[in-house]
Structure formats: C-alpha cells, structure tokens
C-alpha cells in the first residue's frame, strides 16, 4: 500500500457515511417522484404537446399569433436531475476532507506537502468521476427519465451541450474542480485569522456585488464567463486559473497548519 492509497482509503472512510446518505436520499427522491408521477398518470411530454395544441387553437380563434401561455412556476413540477443531486458531494468533499483527514494523515507520519498533493489528487479524481457520471447520465435523462418526469440538468442550464460530449465533460470537470478547490481554501485554515478575513470578504462580496448597480454588471459578467462561456478553452482557462489561486491560498494555510 502506498501513501496515496492510504489517503484515498482515509478519505473514503471519512466520506462513506455522507456518500451513502446522499445516495439513499437520491434513491428515495427518484422512487417517490416516479411513484407520484405514475399514480397521477402524469406525462410531461404529453402535457407539453397538449399545451402547444391548445395555444395553436387559441391563436386560430383569436387570430393573434403572438399569443402564448405562461405556466406559473408554482404549477411546474421540475426536479433536479439525480446526477446533479450528486454534486452536493462537491462541497461535502471539500469541507469534510480538509477538516477530517489532515490529522489522521499526519498521525500516520505523512508530510504536509504530500498530504496536500494527495488531497488535490482526490479532488481531481472526484471532479472527473462526477463529471463523467453526469455526462453519461445526461442522454439517459433526456431519453428515459423525461418521459415520466420533468428535470433540469446543469449541462442544459449552462448550455454545455454546445461543446459536445467531451466538451461538456471537460467543462464540468474544471468547474467542479473549481468548486472543490474554493471550498478547500475556505476550510483549510479555519484557525487562521486570514481565513476569517477571507470568509468575511466572501460573505460581504455577494450582497455588495449584487446591490451596487455598477458592480452588478461585473458580477454578472464574471459568472457568465465562468459558467456560460461560449468558448470552451476560455472557460477551462478561467476555471483552472481561479482553481490555481485557491490552491495556492489553501497551500499557504496547510503548510502552516498545526496538528
């Protein structure tokens, strides 16, 4: 057994409960959703066709071709994709691992440098696995799940399908890695006053950035570039670039972290 395998095993032991609870919650949610839809005889595709037919008839009757029907959001029954629900693991991983694996690894005799490299390895593997699961789930969701339930998936929401299977997979991987490294930064130095400042800045940045009109544009531009980027290369560059900044910050905390 090598040190990386030990870290994977320790990470798995620490995450096991959270992973099983999440999988169980997703399974219960899927089963409940399927049962309710079957019981009510709901067919989202048929509903969409019926609405489209009704709109057509109304347009004919009124002669108004601009007529449309807006379904109130509270009447829509749209569920988060099961594969997307797994993404709750992103913050969970990046909170639990730095908090719960540092001491066991140091206790075994690991160095901070190797531990940190290993942690990034765990994040990279997790980002790849989650991106792969969602990429493989997406066609299944479109062709099978949506016959009985309305869902939304990040791939669709952020229009990542435009880059094809590989492109969407890559976009997801780098974005998930970005999220993991950001949370890792926030939870790597909880004892450090610099970390508290960082938390304060982050918490303050959201309301300030969205309440001041001149800043709001930049905040929106940033999120557009991060999530809705039309250039895959630029999206990967931005996500990875920011991840590197978070990694550098987290390393500064980790290398001075005491047992």
């Amino acid at each position: 057994m090598n040190k990386m395998k030990v870290q994977l095993q320790v990470s798995w032991l620490r995450m096991k409960l959270a992973i099983w609870i999440l999988i169980a919650a997703i399974a219960v949610s899927v089963i409940a959703n399927f049962t309710i839809n079957m019981a009510l005889g709901s067919d989202p595709q048929q509903d969409a066709q019926d609405i489209a037919a009704a709109v057509g008839e109304l347009r004919e009757l009124t002669g108004n071709n601009d007529l449309s029907i807006e379904v109130p959001s509270e009447m829509e029954n749209v569920n988060v994709s099961s594969a997307n629900m797994l993404l709750i693991l992103l913050p969970l991983l990046a909170i639990i691992l730095p908090l719960k694996t540092f001491r066991p690894m140091m206790n075994f005799g690991d160095s901070r440098r190797r531990y940190f490299a290993g942690l990034l390895g765990v994040y990279a593997v997790s980002a790849i696995i989650l991106a792969l699961v969602n990429s493989l789930w997406w066609p299944f969701e479109q062709n099978v799940i949506r016959t009985y339930s309305q869902t939304y998936n990040l791939i669709e929401v952020f229009d990542w399908e435009q880059f094809g299977f590989i492109g969407a997979f890559l976009y997801q991987t780098v974005f998930y890695f970005f999220v993991l490294t950001l949370f890792n930064l926030l939870f790597s130095g909880l004892k450090s006053p610099i970390s508290w400042i960082l938390w304060t800045v982050l918490i303050a940045a959201i309301p300030i950035g969205t309440s001041i009109a001149s800043l709001r544009v930049h905040v929106a531009d940033f999120f557009l570039a991060l999530l809705f980027n039309d250039s895959l290369v630029s999206a990967i560059g931005l996500n990875l670039g920011l991840s590197l900044v978070w990694i550098a910050g987290a390393w500064l905390f980790t290398r001075r972290r005491t047992f």
Partner: peptide, 27 residues
C-alpha cells in the same frame, strides 16, 4: 521517525488490520 501519540487519530471506522496496513506505507 515514528511518533506514537498519546491520543490516536486513526479513523474510527477503520479496522485494526487496515490501520496497520496504512501505517506500513509510512515506514
């Protein structure tokens, strides 16, 4: 160097044999 602390920090849900296997990687 092998340092055996007064309070152990081995994962509670790991079995003794797993802990020994893991420790072997560092020595």
């Amino acid at each position: 160097t092998c340092y055996i602390r007064e309070k152990n920090f081995y994962p509670g849900n790991a079995r003794v044999r797993d802990v020994l296997q893991m420790a072997s990687a560092f020595h």
